[in-house]
Design a protein around this nucleic acid. Structure first.
Lengths: 107, 107
DNA sequence: ATTTATTATCGTAATATTGCGATATTAAGA
DNA sequence: TCTTAATATCGCAATATTACGATAATAAAT
C-alpha cells in the first residue's frame, strides 16, 4: 500500500492534515523563516542560504505556494517570494481552532 | 535520494518539522479528535470508529505517543488513551510562537 | 539575434510512509 | 491451565516524498 485513505476522512480532516504535512519538512520551515528575515521580498538567495540544489528549493517553494502560504512575483529575471500574510493568519487561526476544540473534552 | 537532509537544519527547525509531520495525516487528526470526544479516556473503539485495520491504528497511536501528544494507560485487557494536555498546550504554544515570529518581517 | 542569468519542470534513484495480514504478547475469565 | 480478547510488533507490498542533474523557459543585457 502506501496510499493514504483520504476517502474515509472528512474534508476538514484532510485539509488540516495536508496543511500540517506541508509544514512538516525542515527545508520548508527554513524557507519560511528566511523569507521573513528579509524586510523586502527575496529571490533565490535561498539556494545559497539553504544547502539544497536549485531544483529542490524550487520544488519546496511550489508546495508552499500550493497552500497559499507564499506568493511569488516576477521581478526582472528573478522571482520575488513573500509570505501571504492573510493566508498565514488564516492558517494560524484554523490550527488554533483545531487545538482548542480538540482539547476541550480531555480527561 | 529520498532522505531529508536534517544535518543542514538546526534542531529547532527539525523538531518543529517533525511535529508538523506527525500531525500531517488525516488518520492521526481523526484519532485525536475522537479521543477528545470521549469524556473519559478511550481504548480501541478507534478501530471500529475509523475504518482502518487494527495494526494500522496501533501504528498511528505509536507516532502520536512518540511526540507525547497522547498517553496510554493499561486498563485490564485494553488500553486507555488520552490526550496529554500539558504537552498539547506546550506544542500549541511552540507552534504559535513559530507563526508569530515568522510573520513579523513580512513585506 | 545571441548570450547570460534565473527559475521551473522532467526524469530518475534512493528512501520513507502507509496499510495490512500474520503473529507475538499480555491479561482477564472459565 | 486453557481460552478469549485486546493490543503491539514484524514483514511485506504499494505508493509517496526527497533530492538532484539535465534541460526547458523566460527575460534582461550585449
Amino acid at each position: 500500500m502506501g496510499v493514504t485513505k483520504t476517502q474515509i476522512f472528512d474534508q476538514q480532516q484532510n485539509e488540516l492534515a495536508q496543511f500540517f504535512k506541508i509544514l512538516g519538512h525542515p527545508a520548508r520551515i527554513a524557507i519560511l523563516q528566511f523569507i521573513s528575515t528579509q524586510d523586502s521580498c527575496i529571490c533565490n538567495d535561498l539556494v545559497d542560504e539553504i544547502g539544497l540544489a536549485q531544483a529542490t528549493i524550487s520544488q519546496h517553494l511550489k508546495e508552499l505556494k500550493r497552500i497559499g502560504l507564499i506568493q511569488g512575483e516576477i521581478e526582472g529575471k528573478s522571482m520575488c517570494y513573500c509570505i501571504n500574510i492573510n493566508r498565514w493568519n488564516e492558517l494560524q487561526q484554523t490550527l488554533n481552532s483545531f487545538f482548542n476544540t480538540t482539547k476541550q473534552n480531555c480527561c
